[in-house]
Every structure is written in structure tokens, then in C-alpha cells.
Amino acid sequence: MTARRTRSHMYEKAFIGLALAAVVLPLLLLAVLIADVIVDSSGRLGFDFLTGYPSRKPEQAGILPGLAGSIYLILLTAAMALPVGVGAALYLEEYGKKGRLSNLIEVNISNLAGVPSIIYGLLGLEMFVRTIGLGRSLLAGAGTMALLILPIIIISSREALRTVPLSVREGAYALGATRWQVTRKVVLPMAFPGILTGSILAVSRAIGEAAPLIVVGALAYIAFLPDSVNSPFTVLPIQIFNWVSRPQEEFLKNAAAGSVVLLATLLILNSIAIVLRNRLQKRRTW
């Protein structure tokens, strides 16, 4: 009896050890990566870098158009993808009939989430840039990115909606609430933190993408900021990629500094979203 207990105790310890290693290892790798880019950027990072425009002289080159482009693009992308994605998830979970068709849709959405991003770039080029005629604009880029992250938002929102217990819904119905009232007042607020978590992950993915945007027509050199959604633009990953591929080693420092800016942007945007989520969670009244 005691022997068995000690053994299961041992297993538990080993498991905790493994789990701890699984947490520490990626964090360590991330720390090494961040330390490495910060060292490589060696002093290039500063106010001038953040507010400067690209230049042939590496020490004078700045990242402002990329930074501004990335932020505008992400806001626009979120504005397009979130309502549509959450709406689609709500319909599929709450309103749509379960059956062969809904299964087919579900499989297709899961498939779309795995399609390589460059394919979305080609789709965006044909659809937004050429057919709808948006040109190589922020709007076309954001549309493409919205398509790219839509499947992830739909899938994670559906998962979040499924976690709302049936008993809660039934309780609301029992009190005479309509389906819209149940969805609006009970299901959505309860699922909202989960929906936001999924959306944060999806939007984070969009910030790091370069390939589809190159296809859609994001630029390598632009010395002004977007002044409307029809403006041409560039984003951080493209600017970084551009610097990495230059022959002069000095440009690699810019690329490293650009990577730090990209990481910081991601961190700030995610923090804002998480704070927002926590505040919404606290406001729940039951």
C-alpha cells in the first residue's frame, strides 16, 4: 500500500518536473532570442529610429512608416475580422441547424485555418486589389489580413460559446427570455473573455505576417505616413526583411532594432487587449 503510494508520488513529481521544463524551456528560448536581437541592435534603437524614415544610410534609417503602417493595418484588420468572425461563430453555434451542412462548414473553416498565408495574399490581390479595385492600399491589406485570421477567430469564438453551460441558457429561457435576449445578455457576456483571448492570438499572428502583404503590394520604400485607408503602406516585418537582405552589415543592426520594435508593439497591443478583457470580466454582475 505504502509502496504504491510512494511510486505514484514519484510519478507525480516527475510529471511536475516535466511540466515545469515545458514552461521554462520556451521562456528561456524567448529570453535568449530577445537578448540576441537587443545586443545585435547595439545602440541603433532610439527616438530617431522610431521617428525616422527609411534611408540608404543605415545609421540614419528609421522605421516610422513601418510602425505606423503596422498599427493602422492591425486596427483595420481587427475592425473587419472581429464583428464578422464573432457573428459567424454566433450564428453557427446559437442559430444554425446542426446537420450535414454545418459539419461541412465546420470542416472547411478548420481547413482554411491551415492554409498557408501566401495563398491569402494571392486571393487578396485578385479580390481586393484587382476585382474590387482598392489598389495597393491599406484597406486591401487589411481585408487580406482579415480573411487570414477569420477562421481562427471563428473557431476560437465557437469554442468559447460552447463553454457556456446549457443550464444557464435554459435558466434564462425559463424566465421567459427570447433567443436574442439569451444570446445578447447571457451567452455573449459569458463567452466574451474566451472570444477575446482567441482574437488576441489571431491578431498577433497578423502583426508578424509579411508574405501575403508583399503579394498584395505593401512597399519596401515609402517616406510618408498613410493619410487614408487608400494610402500605400508598408509594415514592420517587410521593412525588417528588406534590411536583412542588404549586403551592408550595418543594415543588420537596423533589422535587429526593427525586430525589437515589432516585439514591443506586439507586447503593447496584447497588453491593451488583456487589460480590456479583464475589465470586461470584472463587470460581470452575476
Binding site: L75, A79, M80, L82, I132, G133, L134, L139, N230
Partner: peptide, 24 residues
């Protein structure tokens, strides 16, 4: 919910801008 409303408004603001297009 508010975030949703805000993003819908943003989208509505964004859309009318796309008529102006000039590739010539």
C-alpha cells in the same frame, strides 16, 4: 460588447473611403 460596437463603427467609417480610386 462595447469593443464590438466600436469596431463596427470603425468599419462603417472605413468603407465610404474606398470609392476614390485611381490607377490611371
Amino acid at each position: 460588447m462595447r469593443a464590438l460596437t466600436i469596431s463596427t463603427v470603425l468599419l462603417a467609417l472605413a468603407v465610404p473611403g474606398c470609392q476614390r480610386e485611381n490607377r490611371e
